[in-house]
Write a protein that binds this DNA or RNA. Structure first.
Lengths: 241, 241
DNA sequence: TCAAAAGTGTTAATAGTACACCCATGA
DNA sequence: TCATGGGTGTACTATTAACACTTTTGA
């Protein structure tokens, strides 16, 4: 029975994490400036190798925690990247994951130790290997996910203004959103609750702070922002040709 | 530099193929009754191991060709499956792909040699390991893809009737579609061309045969069947809770 | 007093859904 | 002649998109 397996080769299997954060109206990625080989000095995603006795999903969680100190983070698999020479050093098959973190909560010391920095998604530095392709795929998946379920809130502080929320969706879809239509849709989602707190940092007048009520969402999980991804996808399909 | 890699373990990496076909109004999957270990006698997807010097995508194509004799088949990656004990024999990380084939064109002899059979998607036998999970994920991806771009035609003969096309979409989404609305939308897609040929096998009156014009599609790639996947997804989200 | 962000409704256009009958033919 | 699948149009509803002004307040 073992012969069934052992006539076949084995491979290093890595995970790479596309770590999204949101700050000052911009989507950002946590990237490493590699101070180790291969590709020392270049920018890359945070990665690591799958270990014995560890599932691939768990490897991705471990790698994220190694860099940020965070656990229980929202993560989704992007897919497997298996070109023969994608890593010029050795044959490595990599499985990409994206993660959404609150940019105020990670462990700054760990990030510093790894020589990692936040880069704006719209102005990324050149990335090693196929990491840019991973990022692009992750972005499409995030757009779809964010239009179907309320994952966006994990990128925001617990209390947020509607302008922040709108800026987040604009950053995810890369295009402006009509304020009145957006707020109309938000108002239909009862689990996005207005608090009596006011944010005075963003404007003189002050803006009401809202919160996402997880339990209320589970009771009535209607989500009304599908139209934005449809618009974005129509745009990208017509520019694909 | 090698030390960077070789402190890490290596793994068998497999590919598994979810092979969709369409016949007599039903979506089908090509499954193997395993006459080899592990899990001899059980039903499984067609799979194989990634080899040295072969990309993961190429491995999936090779495995599909080994079973069906077909090349240039529409395939999409479903994702990586990496639980530690998913294969009880050995640790194997598997990457699933789905393929869409024309059920009239595969190599019957090869399929017979592999002890493979078409099973209806709605009444699958129990599958080994996590193969059912792979199938379910593939089905969701197929639904999305089929609503965004005209992949469905690869499951049909070159000439098809509108009833066949509608049955295909009904099978993909698992729910009935209104005939007049469906035909109205098809009529808006100029690259679905009516031929002067008539199919008399399906009815006494005969039905007009249509063909998909790839070039015309590329010129004007508007696709009008998005609403069906939205309906299906609304249904599945509300039944998820 | 004015700059800067917050907040607020209506209307028009488009897309989606529901629905029922006649047609052509081979058996 | 009749059973079977092929083919066709309209009216209603829901969703989406476009659009501009008033409010508050700190500097």
């Amino acid at each position: 029975m073992t012969a069934y397996y052992n006539i076949n080769p084995k491979f290093y299997v890595a995970v790479d994490c596309i770590i999204f954060g949101f700050d000052k109206g911009k989507l950002k990625l946590l990237l490493l400036k590699r101070n180790f080989e291969p590709a020392m000095g270049c920018w890359s995603l945070m990665g690591g190798f799958v270990q014995d006795g560890e599932s691939v999903d768990d490897a991705a969680k471990r790698v994220l925690t190694e860099l940020t100190g965070l656990t229980n983070v929202y993560m989704e698999q992007v897919g497997a990247f298996g070109e023969v020479h994608r890593d010029p050093g050795e044959r490595v098959i990599s499985i990409a994951y994206y993660a959404l973190i609150n940019i105020n909560e990670y462990d700054r010391e760990l990030v510093q130790q790894h020589n990692a920095y936040w880069a704006e998604l719209t102005t990324l530095p050149p990335l090693i290997f196929d990491h840019l392709q991973m990022v692009e795929q992750a972005r499409v998946l995030l757009q779809r996910k964010a239009s179907a379920v309320p994952v966006g809130f994990t990128l925001l502080p617990k209390l947020f203004t509607l302008t922040q929320l709108q800026n987040l969706y604009e950053a995810i879809y890369g295009e402006p959103i009509d304020k009145r239509n957006f707020r109309k849709r938000i108002a239909e989602m009862d689990y996005i609750e207005k608090t009596d707190k006011i944010d005075k940092t963003g404007s003189k007048r002050g803006a009401a702070l809202y919160q996402f009520n997880e339990k209320a969402y589970r009771k009535a999980p209607k989500f009304k922002l599908q139209s934005y991804v449809r618009r974005a996808e129509r745009k990208s399909i017509s520019s694909e040709s």
